[in-house]
């Protein structure tokens, strides 16, 4: 976890905003997705987030749904691990793995998380794991030295928020809107009171994700006081349209948006 911890600490020390870049493992191939993730890091992403494709991604909008579908035929557990290993082999960038519960449970939670950690995963983000169900997952992650990333959403309230804040051992994923993943023209402010409340209970950096897809939008979140942003669909679309170079261009423009006030 030190890779991730060091990155978060360095960003805090330097007053730098964080950028987590998502791509789906195996889209379009194992090799190209690994290459594009490395390129995203080289272009300015502080953390890369590797998606484990799932047949029923209920938290995802059309762009990531389509990426999942493209990858599914040739991307199983072994291939996801291979993408992780390739990225890890290339650099020390912190790696988050984004998945849905079922593929992670299929061959046992504990061994799967251990295997992910051994391949180089630093953090686990599980889109359909509510905080209330997360205790066994958090235990397994703790034993493997992986950080389980908690979510807050615009609807998160009351004592739940406090418990979620207490569970954060690296950063918090703030879902920036009501809805699924995918860039939006408008950047809803509905998460801001939740983030403000969260800050009272936790010092962990808070990264906003969902709906954010370009430099201008990233700058909005920076100005709103978030510690960073998570970008997925826009990068998936860039990769599909223009390959690795388009991903790098996109990452650079988001990076510069984030650094404007930095």
């Amino acid at each position: 976890m030190s890779r991730l911890g060091d990155t978060l600490q360095a960003a805090r020390h330097d007053g730098q905003a964080l950028l987590m870049a998502y791509l789906c493992a195996g889209d379009p191939t194992v090799e190209e997705s690994a290459k594009a993730l490395c390129a995203a890091h080289a272009a300015g992403a502080d953390i890369v987030e590797i998606g484990w494709p799932f047949s029923d991604p209920v938290a995802d909008g059309p762009v990531i749904q389509a990426a999942s579908q493209r990858a599914l035929g040739h991307t199983g557990r072994a291939e996801v691990l291979e993408v992780v290993r390739r990225v890890r082999h290339a650099s020390e960038v912190p790696i988050a793995l984004l998945g849905y519960c079922n593929p992670l449970l299929r061959h046992g939670l504990e061994p799967t998380i251990r295997e992910l950690a051994a391949a180089g995963v630093d953090a686990l983000v599980v889109a359909d794991l509510a905080f209330e169900e997360s205790a066994p997952w958090r235990d397994a992650c703790n034993r493997a030295g992986v950080s389980l990333i908690p979510f807050v959403a615009p609807t998160t309230q009351g004592p739940r928020l406090k418990a979620i804040a207490a569970a954060a051992d690296s950063f918090v994923y703030a879902v920036a809107l009501l809805g699924v993943t995918g860039q939006r023209a408008e950047q809803s402010a509905s998460i801001l009171p939740v983030v403000e409340n969260l800050r009272r209970h936790s010092e962990a950096p808070v990264l906003a994700g969902f709906g954010i897809g370009d430099g201008e939008q990233a700058a909005i979140w920076r100005a709103r006081g978030l510690d960073g942003v998570i970008v997925g669909s826009a990068l998936v679309a860039a990769l599909a349209a223009g390959g690795t170079e388009a991903v790098q261009d996109k990452v650079r423009s988001i990076r510069s948006g984030l650094d404007k006030l930095g």
Partner: peptide, 12 residues
């Protein structure tokens, strides 16, 4: 059983 859903739905 249980509640395996995105955080957004937990309040509802």
């Amino acid at each position: 059983g249980g509640q395996y859903v995105p955080e957004t739905l937990m309040h509802a």
